[in-house]
């Protein structure tokens, strides 16, 4: 009998949540959720803008209540995965994030694109509302810390 191995086994939910001071990778967001079971992958990347309230900045310092943030992200992922039968990954960068770099990364894999798009949108919106992470400081260009 032929044994069929998955191309890439799905990770446990803990491995699909990442709060880190390291740069976030689109490749990792994709590889964490890809599977031959799914035909659509949607990636959302939030990046740091160069202007905040009309003033040029060179970066943002993010802060989190890490233990609670992980719990809240797990709840959001569980709700979305149950509703749309998708697989999700949520990552957020902490500490200093320079302008133009990725601060927030959500990826959703679904059988078809509608559920992948909807689950990704839901997860982004819920995370912004319910996960205890803050933009603690905006670092202005040439003017030091605001």
């Amino acid at each position: 009998m032929e044994m069929k191995l998955p191309l890439c086994p799905l990770s446990a939910v803990d491995e699909r949540i990442n709060l880190t001071e390291q740069a976030l990778s689109l490749d990792s967001a994709f590889s964490l959720i890809r599977s031959p079971d799914y035909g659509a992958v949607v990636l959302f990347a939030g990046t740091v803008r160069s202007l905040e309230d009309g003033k040029p900045i060179h970066g943002i310092i993010y802060e989190a209540y890490t233990e609670m943030a992980v719990k809240e992200i797990k709840k959001i992922i569980a709700a979305a995965e149950a509703r749309w039968q998708v697989k999700l990954s949520v990552q957020h960068r902490l500490g200093y994030v320079p302008t133009g770099e990725i601060s927030f990364l959500v990826s959703a894999a679904g059988k078809h694109r509608p559920e992948a798009f909807e689950a990704c949108r839901f997860t982004v919106d819920e995370a912004k509302e319910k996960v205890p992470i803050w933009k603690a400081q905006y670092l202005q260009e040439k003017q030091g810390v605001e």
Partner: peptide
């Protein structure tokens, strides 16, 4: 007990 301002991640 944690006191927090409104969340602003993303």
């Amino acid at each position: 007990v944690a006191f927090m301002p409104p969340f602003s991640g993303g």
